[in-house]
Structures are given as C-alpha cells and as structure tokens.
C-alpha cells in the first residue's frame, strides 16, 4: 500500500448525506474482476440518466472537478453494505480522501485497507468547505495527515482519525505481514484459550 502523507488536489463538493454503499456502486456491477477497474462505476446511477448518458448537472460530472482526489460529503458517508467495492470505485476514480462528519464503520476499515483517507471533519467545517468559492472553483485543497488538517486558501480545519488508522496510512503497512510477525502470540493464545473455552470449535 502507498503511504499517505500530504495530498494537494481539487475537491469534489458532493455534499450529499447518507451516501450508502449501494449508491457508491450498485450491486449489479460487483461481479467484475478488480483488474478491469472500478472507477467507471462510481455513483453510477446518480451520475447517469436512465439511458446511460452523463447527467451534466451532477457535481461529479462537472469539468472543474475532473482532477478531484478529495470528496466532500455530509454525514454518514459509506453507510450500509460492507462491500469493499465502494472503496475501489473511489480509489480507481483517483480519489485518495473523503471528508465528512461521519462514516460507516465498515467503510472506514475498508478505506484504510486501500490507502483512502476517511477524514472526520466537524459538520460546520464541512459546510464552510461546501460553500468556499475557491473549493467550488476547483482550486486545490491540502490534506496533511501528520498534522491532521485540511487547508483551503487561508482557512485550516482539523480532522479526526483513529490513531491506529493514521499510523497504518502513514506507514502503508501490510496487515498480513504484520499479523504473521505475531505467530508466537497466536500459538500461546490458542493454548490458554482452549482451557478457558473448550467449546469454541465446531463439533463436526
């Protein structure tokens, strides 16, 4: 995983609340192998008309945000289904960060696994960003993970992220390798746990 340090890029002012993972990627696309790329499925049914053409009025289709790597949304972004494909669509479309007052818990874990920063920004600061003329014009904003800050022009806001998630993004750690380094602890756990919970394994 590529470590995340500082990102400077335009932001897409999506501004929607309760963006569920069914909106981020409708279920019918989820049989697709990842190698084919998921970027084209991002917010598919909001982004397109019945006939499949792009809705020009939808913010994601605005040419000012064509190079956006940050998404700005209202509360409860990524709620619903656990589908990691909801992160793949964002990552494959070039997004590295989502700013919102709150996120679905599973979406947050999935984002971290894929190097996408789910930054919790106070609702009033999100409103300020969504109404910031410079953001709306497609000017870049800066996300600093070390400082846990978002800056647009001369305005700077703090964001929240669990310490362990922050570490993992900064380091770009591979969790499987990390877990394997705990092999001895796992062995010891299994021995003492069997004494405490002799009923833990399936009987068949």
């Amino acid at each position: 995983m590529v470590p995340f340090t500082i990102l400077t890029a335009p932001a897409c002012p999506l501004g929607l609340e309760n963006v569920d993972t069914d909106q981020l990627i409708p279920a019918r696309f989820m049989q697709t192998p990842r190698a084919q790329g998921y970027g084209g499925f991002l917010l598919h049914d909001l982004r397109r008309t019945e006939s499949g053409s792009m809705r020009v009025e939808f913010v994601l289709n605005d040419p000012r945000y064509a190079a956006a790597a940050v998404m700005i949304a209202r509360n409860n972004f990524g709620c619903g289904s656990s589908r990691e494909a909801a992160v793949y669509v964002l990552a494959d479309a070039g997004f590295r960060c989502v700013l919102a007052p709150g996120f679905g818990d599973i979406f947050t874990s999935n984002a971290i696994q894929n190097g996408l920063l789910p930054a919790r920004v106070a609702a009033c600061d999100i409103e300020s960003l969504l109404h910031d003329p410079s953001v709306l014009a497609g000017a870049p904003i800066t996300i600093d993970l070390m400082e846990q800050s978002v800056s647009s022009g001369d305005k700077t806001f703090a964001f929240d992220l669990r310490a362990d998630f922050r570490q993992r993004l900064l380091n770009g750690w591979d969790t499987v390798d990390m877990t394997r380094s705990y092999a001895k602890d796992i062995e010891a756990f299994l021995v003492r746990d069997l004494a405490a919970r002799p009923w833990r394994d399936p009987v068949r």
């Binding site: 656990s82 494909a85 992160v87 874990s109 999935n110 499987v176």
Partner: peptide, 11 residues
C-alpha cells in the same frame, strides 16, 4: 459478530 470488507476477508 461483525461484518468485514474484502481485504479483511483475505486477512
């Protein structure tokens, strides 16, 4: 009991 994403499934 809780739901996990694909990378956690792999893990």
């Amino acid at each position: 009991a809780f739901g996990i994403g694909a990378s956690e499934v792999a893990h």
